[in-house]
Amino acid sequence: MKRRIPLTLTLVLGIVMMIQFFIPHQFSQDFKNTALEWLRVIGGFAFIIGLASFITHHYTKIKHKKEGWAYSPIALGALVVMAVVGLIGRSPNMNWIPVTVQGQQISVFTYLFSNFFTHMMIPLGATMFSVLAFYIASAAYRSFRAKSLVSILLLVAAFVIMLAIIFYNVLPLGDLGEWLLSVPNMAAKRGILLGASLGGIATSLKIILGIERGYLGGTK
């Protein structure tokens, strides 16, 4: 029962949703929209479980004073502050502790939430990705060795694209870069996309038919 019920649910729901696609009726469309809404709600609870796992991990780290435990209170503190500020600040009817910003009265939580996002999350994320520019250059130096025809092609394509972006108006680099993106690059991307799509369909079928059972876990 512990395995049969989930497998049956997956099979039935999978087949129903596939059949639904081929029924051009309002009822079918409403059914799909309801299913998508329910998926979002169920997914929301999954996020909370993930959050609980994060909190447990850091709590255990602090409790046992594992290596790097001193950073855990910072992560937990940032989580609590942002969550509280976001939960209250994004609520439409809560105007607690109003402050005036650019002539408008808003809740201090809305003000903090907006600024935490704009002046903390965005700069941190953007800087983390920008730092990759250095690592990617160092990785390229190590891996881009013109040893064979294919590695030369990789090297040349990368350089042409980089130069084409920098000297876009200097012909024929811009045109060459565009051609490289729209013909050979597009061919490879489309081939990989088609392959991945067929793989996605095969995996979905395996899940629906109960061949792929990894999500049930190891126990009976």
Partner: peptide, 20 residues
């Protein structure tokens, strides 16, 4: 660690308001 905490807090607020 600030980034990780803020991102998760932001995610929780968004999941609560937009889904739950």
């Amino acid at each position: 660690h600030i980034f990780v905490g803020l991102s998760l807090g932001y995610g929780l607020a968004m999941i609560w308001h937009l889904a739950l």
